[in-house]
Nucleic acid binder design. Structure first.
Lengths: 147, 147
DNA sequence: ATATATAAAGACCCTTATATCTTTTTATAT
DNA sequence: ATATAAAAAGATATAAGGGTCTTTATATAT
């Protein structure tokens, strides 16, 4: 459903938020270890995220990644959009170029229901709501968290 | 959501079914033209489909593709499964290896709802139900159909 | 000032999905 | 039998996603 890069991005952002709440500003290698992603590749992903202002960074000793205090909520949709575009929320499930309600593909309505469900999910959930759940013990970030 | 190959496959199978109902057995180039896919690539896809018995073929003059009379219904799920596996119906939306109800990722339940919706859709729809809709004018296969 | 820790940037590589081309096999028409 | 029409098979090409490595820029600690 989501690309591997997007998955890494979401997991990383949730971890960064959790650490920020603890007053910590994690760096690339710490995050990569936690989310079980390749270090160098993670660095690339974080570059993309900071370039698009979803995330802030500081270079140099004691540097790392953190969220802008003003930007209180970052939706999963925004993360997907930056990582792989929003095509999945527009595209016909059949791959037809001009499929719409007047010219519907054979599973137009059924597919739209699924697609909208996914859209609502990622539009309503944010890195902060996700992180809160983890903090409250309602969810886990990875298999190591429980051990 | 679905790979391009899977999209081509579904569209092709629907077209083949429609032609079969008319007593016609279409060949690679005819199908490829209709579904707006590359001819040689389409041929590869049809090889995969016939190898997995989702489709029958006949070589030689007057040959082409057709459905086994005994196999009256072919679900979209089966097509997806042959073309790209069923991973999308099992995978965690977060990319976690062991995410489950006892160890849920932060959007476990919400995502599962979407995923199951998609699963039910592709498990209930078949190439035949899709084709029927097209035949009845309730849906169109591509943009050329309406012109 | 210098050394050190860190992210940014850019070049590169590997794998998979997408796509093409050529040759071989098989059926039919004549 | 021979020519022809078609799919099967296999080799190759291209593009994108995923991943690595090296160098550069920048902040902090000493």
């Amino acid at each position: 459903m989501l690309s591997k890069s997007t998955e890494y991005a979401i997991r990383a952002l949730a971890y960064i938020q959790l650490q920020n709440w603890k007053g910590h500003r994690p760096g690339v290698s710490e995050i990569a270890l936690e989310i079980e992603a390749p270090v160098a590749y993670s660095a690339k992903i974080f570059q993309t995220l900071t370039k698009h202002k979803l995330l802030e960074s500081m270079k140099g000793r004691g540097g790392g990644f953190f969220f802008d205090k003003n930007q209180s909520h970052l939706t999963i949709f925004d993360v997907i959009n930056v990582m792989e575009g929003d095509g999945v929320f527009h595209k016909c499930g059949f791959g037809l170029k001009n499929c719409n309600s007047k010219n519907p593909c054979p599973f137009h309505n059924e597919y739209i229901t699924v697609r909208e469900g996914f859209y609502n999910l990622v539009k309503n959930e944010t890195i902060q709501t996700l992180s809160k759940k983890i903090q409250n013990g309602e969810a886990v970030l990875n298999r190591l968290s429980k051990e």
